[in-house]
Design a protein around this nucleic acid. Structure first.
Lengths: 119, 119
DNA sequence: AATAGCACTATACTTTTGTATAGTGGAAAA
DNA sequence: TTTTCCACTATACAAAAGTATAGTGCTATT
């Protein structure tokens, strides 16, 4: 199935597609979101684990990104009521489904690089 | 073909994939790039035509975006040496190939919206 | 009792991104 | 010849995104 199979399709339903596209881009845009999502592809992680996985990120940024990703329905925050409380972050179903999008992006990126070097 | 078929694949070649992913994201990020590319999907256009197609963009921004897209190999700037000179912008092959990426993004966006509304 | 780890928050700052407004230089149309 | 169109550029500014550094409240360990 393809959403933009020809130019007529773009003309027919531009707003819904444009909104969906913008949503997806917003979920991925910024310096850290892709990295945070990347780390969480390996499974659920605690705050400091993600922090260590990304080395240069500040806790302020990580906190901000996780909140946004949660708000966008890409990440779940799981609180385990033990002593002390354990907080973990994991990708939602939607989060895991981003794999297809990222895959297509990687594909384009690799092909595009090849083309540029050939010239 | 899939780049991230399992977690092992991510572990094997993270840097090349990460770079390709970042390249693709950079080509699409920002307020106007997606719109400019969208307009050019309909065929080659002159500066003022794109400007009119996007209504709210300022010439400064359009000029900047077109330069970046050209630099990134997504758009060609074609100069026709008539009197007066006619300048047109068109998508490169790579530019048109973004369709697959955008399509996947639209797909995710639509599915994700549905999921959020169901809850 | 002092120290360390967890999961953050607060404040101030710098950098990047985008906006507003005006202007340029050439050609062509009125 | 004045005005208009085209394809931009220049300058100044505002807003958003990201960084640096320190600190909080809790629990657990030594």
């Amino acid at each position: 199935m393809s959403y933009i199979s020809n130019i007529e399709d773009i003309k027919k339903c531009p707003t819904e597609f444009a909104l969906a596209l913008r949503d997806t881009l917003n979920v991925l845009s910024g310096k850290w979101k892709l990295n945070v999502i990347g780390v969480l592809f390996f499974g659920k992680k605690r705050f400091t684990e993600i922090e260590k996985g990304l080395e240069e990120i500040t806790p302020r940024m990580l906190s901000k990104e996780l909140k946004e990703l949660e708000l966008n329905g890409v990440v779940n925050r799981i609180v385990t009521a033990s002593r002390p409380v354990v907080i973990e972050y994991e990708l939602t179903e939607s989060g895991y489904e981003l794999k297809k999008v990222l895959d297509e992006m990687i594909g384009w990126g690799i092909l595009h690089r090849e083309k540029i070097f050939k010239k």
